[in-house]
Nucleic acid binder design. Structure first.
Ligand code: ZN
Ligand code: ZN
Ligand code: ZN
Ligand code: ZN
Lengths: 152, 152
DNA sequence: CTGGCTGCTGTTATACTGTAGCGTTATCGC
DNA sequence: GCGATAACGCTACAGTATAACAGCAGCCAG
């Protein structure tokens, strides 16, 4: 059929950026690819390391600038408590997700829980606070690691 | 009468540490005092600067060690999104609060909202995740700044 | 075509945040 | 006192992030 069986996150990012009239340049796309193929959040300097193909020694601003763009476009999230970045699992609409972060295996689960959003919204409303960005990160041990008794 | 009219956060911290059998040493108390008297969150190096009375040039580990202790005892909180620290407003029982952070005036409001806690707990429960530490920080513009039209 | 403008990239240098390691000093139980 | 432990001071360094400037490509008005 005309539509491929599955679009990966990169193809969806391409389409999204076209629709928004912004440029997902090769460098930016590369950073996004690295983050999406990683099984855990990566620090900026880990991304930098992963971008060295062959010989060229890239500098920090390169990756930080790409990350700034990807964050603005909601294609990746920053995990403040880890100083690390992760590809967004549903970037089609802008959002600031909630994250469950396993300290044992490094697994990160992104949520978009309406009850959490609503409770934050109503708490802010009560004080007249106007929210712009929400950071919600729960650190602990994931179900899998609890089951294995790895929890320490 | 026997009881002073008002106990400040320092006196309450003293009592708390005695009860717990831990030592609120002069260095630690000093850091706590600086944080409690500040009108906004302070970075570790700002605290360091504030601790230089007269001549002695203190080194970073001094303040980081004091902060580690105060964090363990729940007397201060770390704001991950600002890399800064703030004194807790109700340290009597251990908790990880929620914070409304104004990007305009720097004001930080600490909440302990049961609806937020409950929604986080139930989201974690659904996936079998065992929470240990919660980071909830909402960045935006406080009511006061919105009223003044300073919001940018 | 030309020249200016804008946005992206490369590079150097540096600022800011946090820790390892080690020796000394204070504190506490005995 | 005396040994064990906790706290402190210090040097050095690791990790995270940004400022500032230069080059280059594309786009568009003139
Ligand atoms: Zn997301
Ligand atoms: Zn796990
Ligand atoms: Zn608190
Ligand atoms: Zn404000």
């Amino acid at each position: 059929m005309g539509t491929p069986a599955a679009f990966g996150p990169l193809e969806r990012a391409d389409a999204l950026c076209v629709r928004r009239g912004v440029r997902l340049t090769p460098q930016r796309r590369r950073v996004l690819a690295i983050l999406c193929s990683a099984s855990r959040p990566l620090g900026a300097y880990e991304i930098l390391e992963a971008m060295r193909d062959g010989s060229r020694p890239l500098a920090p601003p390169t990756v930080y600038r790409a990350l700034d763009f990807l964050l603005e476009q909601g294609l990746v999230h920053k995990l403040e408590s880890l100083h690390a970045f992760i590809g967004c699992r549903h970037p089609d609409h802008p959002h600031s997700g909630q994250f469950l972060i396993c300290r044992t295996c490094g697994l990160v689960t992104e949520l978009e829980d309406e009850a959490i959003c609503e409770s934050l919204r109503s708490a802010a409303d009560e004080t007249g606070f106007r929210p712009e960005r929400r950071v919600v990160e729960v650190l602990g041990v994931c179900a899998c690691c609890v089951g294995k008794g790895v929890e320490g």
